[in-house]
Structure formats: structure tokens, C-alpha cells
């Protein structure tokens, strides 16, 4: 097992919109602390699931990993090489790809599909003897007919647009593809098509996937390992099957219990979790989850727990819970 992407002690801030004066003057600008102390290792060729509700910082994490946003602390290593090394950013761009939540919006609106999916070759100045043939091959790889190459993004259906974005992401045979909500907006009967396609590509080409989603059932089916993010901190990581079978962190447990169950016989009578995810602007002191936690004790309000390994391959950030 080799490490594909390592994050250690990573934190990230976002600039808060200030007035014109603060932008021009060289004083300290107001910033919002989004990610804190993220330590995570993605392995080569594995599908990793990142779960979090809106406001948990999961999209920011993807942006930081791709070098679209800076980290304020900690280290990022792609294929063993720190991103601060000279030329590392270019190799990161070459070896990673992103699939956005809204596939149509992530395609240049005035560019035909054929051109859009071969764009990575042009960007990295990789000679293509026949761009059209490559476009057709990429489309075939994701199960789309050649005629799609002549279309514009707005002429695609939701499922087709997903496939086109998958084709573009795979164009340069990346080692890591980050997929943000890969099934958002898709009907249940189409969801499976996209997830199956991704798992086939992983098996055939050894692509590593980082799937970011708030949809637990999607993550449960695709990811080998998962991490749960709450207010910018990892609260639990581990193999998917184990975490779902026995969640340690109370937040993970309530997330799993909150998922609506289609079986009326297993209808829930109680409520697994109350309250709302606090705003990042008012990050609770101590453990971030104590405001909603059923187990919260006095120490949780003052002392922030650290992420510790509690079982082989499983880590947890909680004072009280554990195996």
C-alpha cells in the first residue's frame, strides 16, 4: 500500500469579504478558519469517501488538495512529494482531476464536448495526432456515442453530462480523481450507472477516487474507507463497513441514524440528532460537536479532543466514545 496523497496537520482559512480599504491597506485581513488539523492519507487506487454536511468544509478541502486554495498550516504531499517543492504543483495538476457537483456548469458553455474533453492534452501540451479520434475514444470509455462530441454542454442530459465530465477527468490517466457529490441531481435509476462507471474505471485503470458527499448510501456503496468531517475537523475515519457497522463518534452515529429508511417497518420514532450545525463564524469552544452531542460532558466544552487511533485503521476525535 503506497500513499497517494497525504495531508498532515492541514488547516485552511478563507478570506472574509472586507471593505475596499482593508483590501488596499497592508493590515491583517479578516479570515474565516474553515479546516483545522486535517491528517489523512489516501492510498493508491482506493476509493475514499469524505462525508460532511453543508458547512463542514468538504468542498474547501477538495480545493485545498487541488491547490486551488492555499493551506494556512500543515503539509500536503502528492505521491510522496510536498506541494511546496518546485514544479510539484504542475505535477499535481497533471496527476489529479476534479469532477464538479454541477457537471454542466463545469464545462465551458461555448465549447463542444469533443474539444472540452481533450482540453487537458492541449493544456499540458501533449501532442495528439488526432484530437477527434481521442475524443471519440474517451467518450467510448464512459459509454457515450461519438455523436456527443459535437454537442454543447447545455444540450446534454444530467447523466450524459456526468459521463462527459468523467471522460475529461480521465483523459490524462490521473492517479487521483476528486468527485464532489457525483450523484447530485441524478435520478435513482441513473445514480447507479455513474457509480458503476466509476468503480469500473477504478478497477481497470487503478484510479484513486476521493468521493465527497453528504449522501451516506452513496458513500457506503462506493468507498473502501471513509472520513467524517464536522465543522472543518475530521471526527472519525476508518474502513467503511466497520464504521457503518459500529460508528464510534456520536456524530457519525447520528448521521447514520438520520438517513431516512425506505422500509416502513424500520420507521424511526425518535430523533437521532437535534439542533443545527453551528456557523463557522461561531465555532464552539472545546469539542465542536458538544452543542449537539448526547454524551457531552463538562470537559468537552473546554478541551478539544485530538484525533487518535482507537482500533487498527480507525481513528476518532472524542473524549468519551470508543470501542
Amino acid at each position: 500500500m503506497t500513499a497517494l496523497y497525504e495531508l498532515s496537520g492541514l488547516s485552511a482559512d478563507l478570506p472574509l469579504p472586507g471593505d475596499l480599504l482593508t483590501a488596499l491597506l497592508p493590515m491583517r485581513k479578516p479570515r474565516l478558519n474553515v479546516l483545522q488539523d486535517i491528517t489523512l492519507t489516501l492510498r493508491k487506487g482506493e476509493t475514499f469517501g469524505l462525508v460532511g454536511e453543508s458547512g463542514s468544509g468538504k468542498t474547501t478541502l477538495a480545493r485545498v488538495m487541488l491547490g486551488l486554495a492555499p493551506a494556512s498550516m500543515g503539509e500536503r504531499r502528492f505521491q510522496g512529494e510536498p506541494l511546496s517543492a518546485p514544479g510539484a504543483m504542475a505535477r499535481l495538476r497533471r496527476g489529479t482531476a476534479m469532477m464538479f457537483q454541477d457537471p454542466v456548469a463545469s464545462l465551458s458553455p461555448r465549447m463542444r464536448v469533443g474539444e472540452a474533453i481533450t482540453e487537458p492534452f492541449a493544456i499540458h501540451r501533449e501532442g495528439l495526432p488526432d484530437r477527434r479520434a481521442m475524443a471519440i475514444e474517451l467518450l467510448a470509455r464512459v459509454g457515450l456515442p461519438p455523436a456527443i462530441a459535437a454537442r454543447y454542454p447545455h444540450e446534454l442530459s444530467g447523466g450524459q453530462a456526468r459521463r462527459v465530465c468523467t471522460a475529461r477527468a480521465l483523459a490524462l490517466n490521473p492517479a487521483l480523481v476528486i468527485a464532489d457529490e457525483p450523484t447530485a441531481g441524478l435520478d435513482v435509476s441513473i445514480q447507479g450507472e455513474i457509480l458503476n462507471l466509476m468503480s469500473d474505471l477504478k478497477d481497470e485503470r487503478g484510479v484513486g477516487f476521493l468521493i465527497i458527499s453528504h449522501n451516506l448510501s452513496v458513500i457506503r456503496h462506493t468507498a473502501e474507507r471513509i472520513a467524517i468531517l464536522y465543522l472543518g475537523r475530521l471526527v472519525e475515519t476508518g474502513p467503511t463497513a466497520e464504521v457503518f457497522a459500529q460508528p464510534f463518534h456520536p456524530y457519525t452515529a447520528s448521521l447514520i441514524a438520520s438517513e431516512p429508511n425506505p422500509d416502513p417497518r424500520r420507521r424511526r420514532a425518535d430523533l437521532a440528532i437535534r439542533g443545527e450545525i453551528p456557523s463557522l463564524l461561531r465555532r464552539p469552544k472545546g469539542c465542536e460537536f458538544h452543542t449537539r452531542c448526547p454524551l457531552a460532558a463538562p470537559q468537552c466544552r473546554t478541551l478539544a479532543p485530538t484525533l487518535r487511533e482507537v482500533a487498527p485503521g480507525r481513528s476518532l476525535r472524542c473524549h468519551l466514545a470508543g470501542p
Binding site: S189, Q191, G192, N196, S199, S217, N261, P262
Partner: peptide, 17 residues
Amino acid sequence: IACDPAHVAQGQGHLPT
């Protein structure tokens, strides 16, 4: 119902479509 990932038993392999 068969396609709903919440319905499908956990495990690797393909989801029905």
C-alpha cells in the same frame, strides 16, 4: 426500489440500474 442504494445490501459490486 432495487436501484435505491439504501435498499441494496452493502458490499462491493455493481448497483442495479
